[in-house]
Design a protein around this nucleic acid. Structure first.
Lengths: 206, 206
DNA sequence: TAGTGTGAAGTCTTTCACAGCA
DNA sequence: TGCTGTGAAAGACTTCACACTA
């Protein structure tokens, strides 16, 4: 039972919405309600939740607590995971204390940089390590994921070192492809703005 | 001739790669070469470029200079566009001087915040404005796009003000849906990390 | 009655495979 | 010969529509 990638991306939205509904005292939600909140169709919501094996009750909808539990296990955020950030530049520093990471069980256990002026400095709760310590920290802290927030020029070499040290997943902010033997999710900031420029330019050929 | 959304997302990659090839002195590139560089298939590259009306030469490939020109006009980055950032927190500050925005013609013309301790302060080349100035600056500077880097609680009200003031496109970093009459591209940082967690958890139901 | 679960249909995207061309 | 451009096939995802049910 494999879940389509577009569904996976939506699971995150369902989880966020379900938690918010639970916080507001709601116990149960229908596919129609969720579809309005998230700008989807009811059929899509039912299909997506069906992929997870979540069953709703006709006439009622889905019970929120089991829904949240199932979403968490499906996304793999039902337990804590250790994460390192490589690159203590602007993007790296913005992510160090990003509260939503902590709320999903992603624990930033170390931050690395190559700049001697930054190494050893305290950023939020973290002392910045030199890149030399990468492998030892990853092993000691049982790191599962890495965030690449370094310049393009060194992104692939950093990625390779992370993967060789045992990291299985990379969140890549560098504007290039990472050719490594690990799962990679790219966050393409400029690409997203270009997609937006295309959309407002009228979506058509001039 | 409308371009599929998945193709649009790749156009940005082709543009990046083509510029890099041009810089290294290459004049011509085949679909096979591009597909290797970007981890796509040759057929996909040819189909994508075909959507743009770009023609290659059998036996040779695509001429890089016209390819770049065509990609730029298709993406709507063939001219400069004025952009504002709302929210001078960690994410907003990381984006103020993000060099790839400038390289694509996105000009950050103003940064806004509500925090009196930040308003009036200089961040890179920008003085932070109070939110009160939002509408006047947008009008004066002919702003086409806005970047939402504020907390979820105020994201939608900020978005509505931007759109009412005439901004046609929003890049949204807040973890919520923006229900506004404008093009919106979401950058879901936590969602991306959750997608990665799902991927390394084995992509299957336990 | 209000809402689920799901075959079947529809739509969108990718890939195949190959004629045609410089 | 090496590579394009593209019908046709395949595959992936979404939507329809409705029997079913608590």
């Amino acid at each position: 039972m494999t879940i389509p990638r577009p569904t996976v991306r939506r699971l995150s939205l369902y989880l966020r919405e379900a938690e918010s509904l639970l916080a507001s005292g709601t116990r149960t939600v229908s596919s129609g309600e969720l579809s309005l909140l998230l700008a989807l169709t009811g059929a899509q919501v039912r299909r997506d939740l069906g992929h997870l094996g979540v069953r709703g009750r006709p006439g009622i909808g889905y019970r929120i607590t089991p829904l949240i539990d199932r979403l968490r296990t499906a996304l793999g955020v039902d337990r804590s995971r250790n994460v390192v950030i490589v690159g203590a530049g602007r993007i790296g520093r913005a992510l160090i204390a990003y509260p939503r990471f902590g709320a999903r069980g992603f624990r930033i256990v170390a931050v690395f940089d190559t700049d001697p002026k930054v190494i050893g400095r305290r950023l939020d709760a973290h002392i910045v390590y030199g890149l030399d310590d990468l492998e030892s920290v990853i092993e000691k802290e049982d790191v599962e994921m890495g965030i690449i927030a370094v310049p393009e020029a060194v992104a692939e070499s950093v990625a390779t070192r992370l993967v060789d040290a045992g990291v299985g997943g990379l969140l890549n902010f560098a504007p290039c492809r990472l050719d490594v033997d690990a799962e990679v999710v790219d966050v393409d900031l400029s690409g997203s703005l270009e997609e937006l420029a295309w959309a407002i330019a009228g979506r058509v050929d001039e």
